[in-house]
Measured scan of single mutants.
Amino acid sequence: GHYRIRINGREFEIRGISEEEIRHLEEALRNGADEKILKEIVDRLRG
């Protein structure tokens, strides 16, 4: 998958993330885990 997200007015492209991972992120966001989720995304993109 290849997705664009906007955070604090800046747009980011996220590549190589699966539909299942996105559902997991959405679930966590609904549970209020904003900073933790951003850290997970950044860590994943770093490799």
Rank of each mutant, 00 (worst) to 15 (best):
E13L: 10
R15Q: 07
R15A: 06
R4A: 02
E13N: 04
I17C: 07
D43F: 04
E19R: 09
R10H: 14
G47W: 05
E27N: 11
G16I: 08
I37T: 14
E21Q: 13
R44I: 07
E27G: 06
H24G: 12
I14S: 00
E21D: 14
G16T: 05
F12K: 00
A33I: 13
E19C: 07
I14D: 00
D34I: 14
G16A: 05
D34M: 10
K39I: 15
R4W: 08
I22H: 03
N31H: 07
I5R: 00
E20V: 08
E11V: 15
I17K: 02
S18P: 04
I37P: 01
R15H: 13
G32M: 06
E19A: 13
L25P: 00
I7W: 07
A28Y: 11
L45N: 03
G16S: 06
E19P: 12
I7G: 00
G16D: 09
G47L: 14
A28E: 06
E35K: 05
N8P: 00
L38A: 03
L38D: 01
L25V: 06
F12W: 12
N8V: 01
V42F: 13
D34S: 14
E13W: 15
I7D: 00
Y3I: 06
E20M: 08
D34A: 15
E26L: 12
N8G: 13
H24K: 11
N31L: 10
R23K: 14
Y3Q: 02
E27L: 14
G47V: 12
E13A: 03
I17D: 02
I7K: 00
E40D: 08
L25E: 00
G16F: 10
R30Q: 09
L29I: 14
E19D: 13
E21M: 09
D43Y: 04
S18W: 02
L45T: 03
L38W: 07
L38C: 06
I17S: 03
F12T: 01
E40L: 14
I22G: 04
R23P: 03
V42Q: 04
H2C: 15
H24V: 14
E21V: 06
A33P: 07
R23A: 13
I5E: 00
N31A: 11
R44T: 08
E40I: 13
R30A: 12
R10I: 15
K39G: 08
E35I: 11
R44L: 10
I5Y: 03
E13V: 15
N31K: 11
I7M: 03
I14R: 00
A33L: 13
A28Q: 09
E20T: 09
R23W: 09
R6A: 05
Y3W: 08
I17V: 11
G1R: 06
R44Q: 11
R15Y: 14
R10S: 06
N31Y: 10
I14G: 00
E20A: 11
N31D: 10
E21T: 06
N8Q: 05
R4V: 14
H2M: 08
G32P: 04
R44D: 04
L45Q: 03
L29E: 03
H2G: 14
I41L: 11
V42L: 09
L29M: 11
Y3T: 02
L29S: 03
D34Y: 15
H24W: 15
R15G: 03
E11R: 02
R4I: 15
H24L: 13
H24D: 12
N31F: 10
N8Y: 07
G9T: 01
L38P: 01
R4G: 02
F12G: 00
K39Y: 15
E21H: 05
L25T: 01
G9Q: 02
G47I: 11
L25I: 14
K36M: 11
E40R: 07
K36G: 08
E11H: 04
N8S: 04
E20S: 10
I14F: 15
R15D: 04
R6M: 15
L29R: 04
I37E: 11
R15N: 05
L38F: 07
E21A: 08
R46D: 07
K36R: 13
G1C: 14
N31T: 12
E21N: 08
I37A: 10
E40Q: 12
R46V: 15
F12H: 02
E35P: 11
R46L: 15
Y3V: 04
L29H: 03
L38G: 01
A28D: 03
V42N: 03
G9A: 02
E13C: 15
R15T: 06
E27Y: 12
I7L: 05
E21G: 11
E13P: 01
K39M: 15
A28P: 00
A28W: 12
I5D: 00
G16C: 10
R4F: 14
G1N: 08
R30W: 08
I7R: 00
N31P: 03
E26C: 11
I17A: 14
E21W: 10
G16Q: 05
D43I: 12
G9E: 02
D34F: 15
G1S: 04
R10A: 09
I22D: 01
K36Y: 13
V42P: 01
H2A: 12
I7N: 00
S18F: 03
E26A: 05
G32R: 06
R15F: 13
R23D: 05
G1W: 03
E19Y: 10
G16N: 13
A33R: 06
R4M: 08
L45Y: 10
E35M: 11
L45S: 03
R44P: 02
F12C: 03
I5Q: 00
G47H: 12
E20R: 06
L45K: 02
N8L: 05
R44E: 05
E20Q: 09
N8A: 06
E20L: 08
R30P: 02
I5F: 06
G32H: 07
I14N: 00
E20N: 08
R44K: 10
N31G: 10
L25W: 05
V42T: 04
R46N: 15
L25D: 00
R46T: 15
E20P: 06
R30M: 12
A28H: 13
G9P: 00
F12I: 07
K39V: 13
I37Q: 11
R30Y: 09
L25N: 00
R23V: 08
I41Q: 02
L25S: 00
R44W: 14
E20Y: 09
A33Q: 07
D43M: 12
R30S: 11
E20I: 07
R10G: 02
D34R: 05
H2I: 15
R15V: 10
L29W: 05
G9Y: 01
N8C: 11
I7V: 05
R6F: 15
E35G: 07
I7S: 00
R4D: 01
G32S: 05
E11P: 02
R4H: 14
Y3P: 01
L25G: 00
H24T: 13
I5H: 00
E35H: 11
L29G: 02
I17G: 04
L29T: 03
R4K: 13
G1H: 07
E19H: 08
L38K: 02
H2E: 06
E21K: 04
R44V: 07
E11S: 05
S18A: 06
E20H: 10
I37V: 13
A33V: 14
D43C: 15
E13K: 03
R15S: 06
A33T: 11
I5G: 01
E11G: 01
E27T: 12
F12R: 00
L38I: 12
R46H: 13
F12P: 00
V42R: 03
I37R: 08
K39A: 13
V42C: 05
I41S: 02
K36T: 11
I5T: 01
E19G: 08
G1F: 13
A33G: 07
G9K: 01
E27A: 12
I37N: 06
S18H: 04
D43T: 09
I22W: 13
L29Q: 06
R46G: 15
E27D: 11
I41P: 00
G16L: 07
R4P: 02
I17T: 03
R6I: 15
H24P: 04
I22T: 03
K39P: 02
E26S: 05
I7P: 00
E40W: 15
R15I: 12
A28T: 09
A33F: 09
L29K: 04
I22F: 14
R44N: 08
D43L: 12
V42E: 03
N31E: 09
R10V: 15
V42S: 03
E26H: 05
E11N: 04
R6H: 07
I14T: 01
I17W: 05
I7A: 00
A33K: 07
E11W: 15
F12V: 05
G1K: 07
A28S: 07
L38N: 01
R15L: 05
Y3A: 02
I22S: 03
A28C: 09
R4T: 09
K36S: 10
R30H: 09
R6L: 14
N31I: 09
I14C: 03
V42K: 02
I14P: 00
I5A: 01
I7C: 05
I37W: 09
G1L: 07
I17H: 02
G1P: 11
E11Y: 13
E35F: 14
E19L: 14
I22M: 06
S18G: 07
G32V: 06
E26G: 03
K39C: 14
R10K: 13
R4S: 03
D34W: 15
Y3N: 02
E20K: 08
R23I: 09
R44F: 13
D34H: 13
N8F: 13
E40N: 08
L38S: 01
E13H: 13
D43K: 10
L29Y: 05
E26Y: 11
A28F: 11
E40C: 11
R6S: 06
G16W: 08
Y3H: 03
G16K: 04
A33M: 12
R10E: 15
E19I: 13
S18Q: 04
E26V: 08
L45P: 02
K39N: 11
H2T: 08
N31W: 10
E40G: 12
R4N: 03
K36I: 10
L25F: 05
N8M: 07
R46M: 15
I5K: 00
I37F: 11
G9W: 01
Y3G: 01
R15M: 06
D34L: 13
E26Q: 08
